[in-house]
Structures are given as C-alpha cells and as structure tokens.
Simulated assay, not measured.
Amino acid sequence: MAYAVVRVRGSVGVRGDIADTLKMLRLHRVNHCVIVPNTETYKGMINKVKDYITYGEIDKDTLVKLILKRGRLPGNKRLNEEKVKELMDLSVEELAEKIVNDEILLKNTPLKPVFRLHPPRKGYDKAGIKRPFSVGGALGYRGDEINTLLEKMM
C-alpha cells in the first residue's frame, strides 16, 4: 500500500539533516504531496521528518482524483484521461491501482512526481499544525484519514 506524504510546515529553523531528507522526498514547499511506496527506506525517511509532514495510506479513488485534478506533465501541462491513455497505454484507474499496489513507481511514469495542492478548506483541526494528529493536530501518521485531507486540499 502506497503512502501519500504532504508537507505541512515550512523551512524556517529546520535542521540540516531533516531539510536534506525533505529534499530527497521532493517536498520542497508547504502543501506539496508525493506518493511513495511502502518500503523500509521510505518508512525511515518518513519517520525522520514526521514533525514536518502528515502521511497515510492513499486509496485508489483518491489517487484517481488527484491525478486528474492536480497531475501535471513536464512543462506544467494538464492531464486528462486521453493523455494518460496515450502516454501509458493504461486508463487512469489502472494506473492508480498499480501505483497504490506498488507495482509502478510514480517517478517511473511521465507524470511529475509532485502534486501541488491548496491549503485544506476549513483548515486543519483546532490544535493547529504543530501538534500530532493523534491529539487533533496536523502532523504525523493519519492512516486512512489522509484521503479526506487530500479531498479538502484538491
């Protein structure tokens, strides 16, 4: 099961090693989202930057919406179902299914690996962005709740 990782906090006062890990994850700015496979390497990277990101398991339906609404090709060109079919010989649903099941990595497709999102509509929860999700904040592991957050951010 692939993880959706969203950067929540900015870059002021970030330690160097954490900033480097965020760069390796391609999370250069706030509200950027990447889809990473469920491997030990990525889990270690996510654990290192957990105080600056929120993450969880993305489902197929949310990924389809994310690709169609926020997916881009190089040159910042928009995507639609015909372009995905033409470039990949897969429908958007098949592509999302393969990405979620870690059969294809997003970086191995012609799509840009980063999704630029809006801030969430109605904001994060009341505890703010510096508290973990378990106490009502925005940071850390969300599980399936990442899908509702991504819906609010598209």
Rank of each mutant, 00 (worst) to 15 (best):
Y42M: 09
G56H: 00
H32Y: 14
S91E: 06
G71M: 05
G123R: 11
R72C: 01
D144C: 07
L95N: 09
G143R: 12
P120T: 13
R78E: 11
N101H: 15
V49T: 04
I35K: 01
K85V: 07
E103F: 05
I129Y: 05
P113A: 11
S134L: 09
L66P: 01
V64G: 08
R29N: 10
E86K: 13
I35C: 06
L79N: 03
P120M: 14
E86H: 02
L63H: 02
R29G: 05
E86T: 08
I35T: 03
L106P: 02
T148E: 15
N147K: 07
R29M: 14
P74A: 01
A127Q: 11
N147S: 07
I46N: 02
G137I: 04
G16Q: 11
H118R: 15
R29W: 13
R7Q: 07
V14I: 15
R26P: 00
G128C: 12
G71I: 05
E97A: 05
V30M: 14
L68I: 01
K69S: 11
L139P: 00
V135P: 12
G10R: 04
E97H: 10
A96Q: 10
G128N: 13
G16F: 09
A4V: 03
L25E: 08
R78A: 14
R9I: 08
M24L: 13
L105F: 05
K112D: 12
E97W: 00
D102I: 01
L27T: 08
M45I: 04
N31I: 06
T39G: 10
P110W: 09
K107D: 13
K43Y: 03
I35R: 03
I53M: 02
M45E: 12
I104L: 14
A138F: 03
L68E: 13
P113G: 06
V64S: 04
L66S: 09
D61M: 02
L90E: 12
M88A: 10
N31E: 10
K43R: 15
K77Q: 13
S91P: 01
N101Q: 14
R9A: 08
